[in-house]
Design a protein around this nucleic acid. Structure first.
Lengths: 195, 195
DNA sequence: AAGAAAATATACAGACCTGTCTATTTTGTG
DNA sequence: CACAAAATAGACAGGTCTGTATATTTTCTT
């Protein structure tokens, strides 16, 4: 018995294919027929695992949210040195991401773009990811000794999202370096000064 | 004779309606039939003025690019005070924008999101806007006395785009304030120090 | 008022969209 | 082996999509 239904090979394979196509081409741009053809799966298999395309998109985003945060966490844990160095290593992670061959911007920013209505469940799923990321960043800022960790995390979030957009627009990894340098400056100020 | 075709009432009206719908709902989400119904115009009128939906989108983006830069320019010129204050007034402009009822994120970031292929003409039109904005920002940074105006403008761009994304995700104007505060700090450092 | 240009309504092509239904085959388990 | 669950192919419904064709009417200019 054990939980059942929560995971199955077909379902996982469907989610992996969906992620790849949605991230490459966009959510509205990829149709169900394209998706199942690429996954090599019958249409009813998809609709037995997901109630609708929107549910599939939300599932993909939630899975990506988990993986992303786990990956960043690994990077931080693998970084030796001070809490400040750990925090800044997030920007090294960014730089590697920007340089990867399939980098195509942030799936969550793109979801916000394609589903701008705040009441739309996909919009909300993307928003939840942003909140979770801010929370993780705040924790890192706190450990790095910032006097106002939430405020610093908030500002670093702006830098990160801005860098992602710039990297997507230009195809360069340089924005990660700019963001990292600025983050280092801001962190130094946030540790010494209360505001 | 005089130039002809470059502007006409129908064409302008079509572009205005297209802008409103595309910005509200997304580029792929709005169909031609919806568009012409909303504009109260025959389909052939649209296709006599624009070769395709993509051309219409590009036209809308280019018009928006002009208007946006003109609006920011007005804000800067209307701001009395030092060059630094003029530069920072861009963030006041942002805050007003975020607070406007029809704010829905950045049309260009959303275009990048929906048309991720760098070879796509819509993607390229959005990219051109980003370049133009950086140029204008660099000029302002230079006048404000930054030792490396391009570098500062680059960083401020990250803050601005990050703030736009955050404002879109949360529906709050607060990111403009965070970005402004950080910009003020960075500007002060960039004026006194060479790097 | 006459002729040219622009805009109109309408139908159409051909493709794609999400989601459902059914009947059959495969797969996994006791 | 036998039974049940899962996956399959394929058709189908009812829309929507972009773009074209055509024939008519309106608008502008001279």
């Amino acid at each position: 018995m054990a939980e059942a239904v929560i995971s199955s090979p077909k379902r996982d394979h469907l989610m992996a294919t969906a992620w790849r196509l949605f991230y490459r081409d966009g959510y509205r741009a990829v149709g169900i027929d394209t998706l199942i053809a690429e996954a090599g799966v019958a249409k009813m298999t998809l609709y037995n695992h997901f109630a609708s395309k929107d549910e599939l998109i939300i599932g993909v985003l939630e899975k990506r949210d988990c993986e992303l945060r786990a990956s960043i966490n690994d990077q931080v844990n693998a970084t030796d040195g001070s809490a400040a160095e750990k925090l800044l290593s997030v920007f090294d992670w960014l730089e590697r991401w920007f340089g990867s061959t399939d980098f195509n911007g942030c799936a969550f920013i793109r979801a916000l773009s394609e589903y701008p209505d705040p009441r739309h469940p996909i919009h909300q799923a993307a928003w939840r990811h942003k909140v979770a990321m801010q929370g993780a960043l705040t924790e890192l800022c706190s450990q790095a000794g910032a006097h106002n960790p939430a405020a610093l995390a908030n500002t670093l979030s702006l830098l990160i999202d801005g860098a992602i957009v710039a990297a997507q627009a230009t195809g360069s990894t340089a924005p990660a370096r700019s963001a990292r340098d600025t983050a280092a400056t801001l962190l130094a100020l946030a540790v010494q000064k209360p505001a």
